[in-house]
Design a protein around this nucleic acid. Sequence first.
DNA 1: CTGAAAGCGCTTACAG
DNA 2: CTGAAAGCGCTTACAG
Lengths: 331, 331
Amino acid sequence: MEDVAREAGVSRALVSLVFRGQPHVSERRRTAVLEAADRLGYRLNAAASSLASRQSRIIGLVVNDLSNPYLVAGTEALQERAESVGRRLILGLAKRDAEHEQAAIETLLQHRPDALILAGTVLPKAVLTRFGRQVPTLVMGRIVRDASVDCIAIDDARGAELVVEHLAGLGHSRILHVDGGGGAGAAPRRTGYRKTMTRLGLAEHIDVMAGDFTEQAGANAARQLLDRDVLPTAVFAADDLVALGVLDVFRGAGVAVPEDVSVVGFDDSTIARLQAISLTSVSQPVLHMSSLAIDAVLARLEDPTAGYRAVVVPPQLVIRGSSGTPRPATA
Amino acid sequence: MEDVAREAGVSRALVSLVFRGQPHVSERRRTAVLEAADRLGYRLNAAASSLASRQSRIIGLVVNDLSNPYLVAGTEALQERAESVGRRLILGLAKRDAEHEQAAIETLLQHRPDALILAGTVLPKAVLTRFGRQVPTLVMGRIVRDASVDCIAIDDARGAELVVEHLAGLGHSRILHVDGGGGAGAAPRRTGYRKTMTRLGLAEHIDVMAGDFTEQAGANAARQLLDRDVLPTAVFAADDLVALGVLDVFRGAGVAVPEDVSVVGFDDSTIARLQAISLTSVSQPVLHMSSLAIDAVLARLEDPTAGYRAVVVPPQLVIRGSSGTPRPATA
DNA sequence: CTGAAAGCGCTTACAG
DNA sequence: CTGAAAGCGCTTACAG
């Protein structure tokens, strides 16, 4: 920086101002500085800036389960939005395992991120609170009722409601749910399913199988179903991966979808959209949510004392080929 | 750190030693320091370490096109391996566009990564050389003959050879290739196709359509094919996404796969493995390659003056349902 | 192992 | 705008 100042014939302080994009610098000197920097191949040292300014301009992102295409899309969108506001993402990966996730966060914090975004976190509320008190934290995909973290998620219960209403509207009554276990959003989806079944007079058909957000869980559930005397006419899977597992096993066993059984997923991930899969699914507007997430982080940085904020985004059902009317005969 | 030293009753220097995991510290003092740090909620400041030690322990990863499941798997594997050797990934995303990619690298370099990994780079050799001279750089998915960057890739030409041999072995002769344009590895795949066709006496059937590594490109190619008088009996797509685009359009047009046309992809991504897709594809051992990549980076850091290294990993063909014998009638 | 010192490359605040 | 100074939180090297 010293060298750049000399080369451009200005003071060190001015160089710093230019690189931070401060307004009160004359155009002449600004270009002189930038050209000098270019000639010398100078590049701001982010570590030094971070240390001196107490701002890292880094956002720590912890993604649970990058094998989920839905979270991949979210990561991509977050990265783009973060970049557009001059922040860089530093990545932590976890696999829906609280211990790993916590460890990932701990090391991320060594880089003193300005904020933390936790996508699909499986951490208990108490732990989230603790992190939230150390650094501005945003939880994506789950609503945590706690003043120390901001949240953004779709209305999972409403999503489940849309699914059950859709299936019931087609004439289904034996609608089974394979749930997402302790995953982010799994609980409200389960509750939404139960409530809507009850509201529609289908309480006696409520049937929940335990799962998690993996293809494996869906496959397991489907195999267990095949052992039963009678199949449900529709399966509502906790997410698209679960639905995929169900579809694969059904396909292998000669169960026709949607003729024998309708299958519905959740997330509207890239997988659901494949023509060969064509899965009816609840859409989460990833781009929109990612944009809101970065906005929320910036707002929080500007006003750290602002109140708790939770944004709930409405879901939308995307109907594709995997759901249809039940066979009249099987009723 | 001062406080931790006081709390543990040791010197600041000792605290630093403990946190850097240095060996010559007595067990007693080590635990005393760690416990004191825990009590005070102390965490090493990565920016300060980076500045003082001239080592960031950060690896900059630039991924072209996170919409490609193959590159996602690679990212995940790299992250895991990097973590196991105490490094953190800082992410840059590009979309097979040289300008964006270069800009992403520039800002990554502000964080002074110990090394740079470029996955699926589309940058011209001259630019790669320039970066390679500034920071240890590893190119994944493409072999660049340049002493300033290390490379790791599968043998793309051999992969193409395996595909053509497989299809020819099934009895195909009219084997068309939809290529990957300027994408990493596209050129050797194209060449491998041409050479093998020639070697097998099928030179007159060589037929290359221009594409890139997207579903869209595959769909476009398939649509053009449908306008022709006669379809090829097999399509070798530059990667799985291209193959997916081909499959979707064929499916929509009532072209049966593999009965009417066999389709083969490249990457053996998660998509190829889906039962509903069941795409014959060339497998790139992502986990293995990611592991080699981190090893190569570490080796380079230990010995910056070592010679140019390029590792070529052998590919493997995974045969699934999308390829079969050609219809006898159509010959 | 300790203790004191210098320095990494910036930002910040201030007098001019 | 300049110029000089202090400081961010570490690491490094060194004498003891």
